[in-house]
């Protein structure tokens, strides 16, 4: 395996050390070095904490999104492995004050099991912690079974909007309602072009013929659910946008936020091309695009591939989305006229 690590044992801790060294005014390690948190917590001042535990190997999500206006903490598991309930509990204890906490959970088996267990343990200790399940990947369960779907890149809308709302003093109950509303308005579909290499075992994470693309690739390199032959990207994007709009139709005239997420091995050249196709397809249906988010935010090592997320924010959601933040690896969000 050609990867630039010191050793398998240290790879996650070395990454965290590098991140903390790079942004010492914003980010520190918690009492457990796998808890990455803001240097200055405001959760003692009646601010609801927003945090997530997840497996590493997908950076910049979620560690890079800790900072003012976004997450209070990220509990960093081993590569592609949800942190233990015990470790998530340490993260909760580290940042939760009297206003309580939203524990975000991207819906994957280990994250759900361990996140729910940690929330229960915290509640037993009289901390007001509410888990919020995030799911957006339309390839993982059919319409009508949305709650069975897994979390993908579209969960970023929830991170940012809840992070900004919590910063502004929105209370825990209202944050949960807001998060569920963002979730209900978000859909994602992904495609994989070629596999990344697992840092755990050095193996390619799936196999795919040279002329094939997987639709519905998982964020851990889980093989996809259907295949297509490689062709001009506009055909692939048209297929994916059709699927997204069939799953959740968007009325003409509804301002829409597009996220084109790269899986780690797809170039900005390609991602911009894909965005152009998405926007022209939506234009064709009279759907105006807000300033988009394009880049590798939720990655799976050097996997080549991308996902398209469509989200139709309400006016307050858009305000939270565009609110300033200081998370080192979350992009600048450009504002625009209100909806």
């Amino acid at each position: 395996m050609k990867k630039l690590f010191n050793s398998q044992q240290r790879m996650v801790d070395d990454m965290i050390s590098g991140f903390v060294a790079a942004y010492p005014d914003q980010i520190v390690k918690g009492s457990n070095s796998r808890v990455v948190r803001r240097k200055t917590l405001r959760t003692k001042d009646n601010k609801v904490a927003v945090l997530i535990g997840n497996g590493s190997g997908h950076e910049p999500i979620a560690m890079g999104f800790v900072g003012h206006g976004l997450l209070d903490a990220n509990v960093v598991g081993d590569v592609f492995t949800a942190p233990s309930p015990d470790l998530i509990l340490e993260g909760i204890e580290e940042v939760t004050g009297s206003a309580g906490a939203v524990l975000l959970i991207s819906r994957h088996e280990g994250d759900v099991i361990n996140g729910n267990a940690a929330a229960m343990m915290a509640q037993d200790d009289d901390l007001d912690v509410r888990p919020l399940l995030m799911y957006d990947d339309i390839s993982s369960a059919p319409r009508g079974q949305e709650h069975e779907r897994r979390g993908a890149a579209g969960t970023l809308f929830i991170y940012k909007i809840l992070g900004a709302a919590a910063e502004a003093g929105v209370a825990l109950d209202d944050l949960i309602v807001l998060g569920e509303a963002v979730r209900a308005r978000t859909r994602t579909l992904g495609a994989a072009v070629s596999p990344g290499v697992s840092p755990i075992n050095g193996e390619l994470m799936f196999s795919l013929a040279d002329d094939e693309i997987y639709i519905g690739m998982g964020v851990h390199g889980e093989p996809g659910v259907s295949r297509r032959t490689v062709g001009p990207v506009n055909e692939l994007v048209a297929f994916m946008v059709d699927e997204l709009l069939a799953d959740r139709p968007i009325e003409s005239g509804t301002p829409t936020l597009v996220l084109v997420n790269g899986s780690g091995g797809t170039t900005m050249m390609e991602l911009l091309t894909i965005y152009g196709e998405v926007q022209s397809l939506l234009d064709g249906q009279g759907i105006p695009c807000l300033s988009p988010m394009i880049g590798p935010f939720s990655t799976t090592q050097e996997t080549a591939g991308f996902s398209i997320s469509l989200f139709t924010p309400t006016e307050p959601m858009l305000t939270w989305w565009q609110a300033p933040h200081a998370a080192p690896l979350f992009p600048t969000i450009f504002g625009e006229a209100a909806v």
């Binding site: 598991g77 088996e109 280990g110």
Partner: peptide
């Protein structure tokens, strides 16, 4: 030590 769903 194991973490993940398998750990629990």
């Amino acid at each position: 030590a194991a973490g993940g769903a398998s750990g629990s």
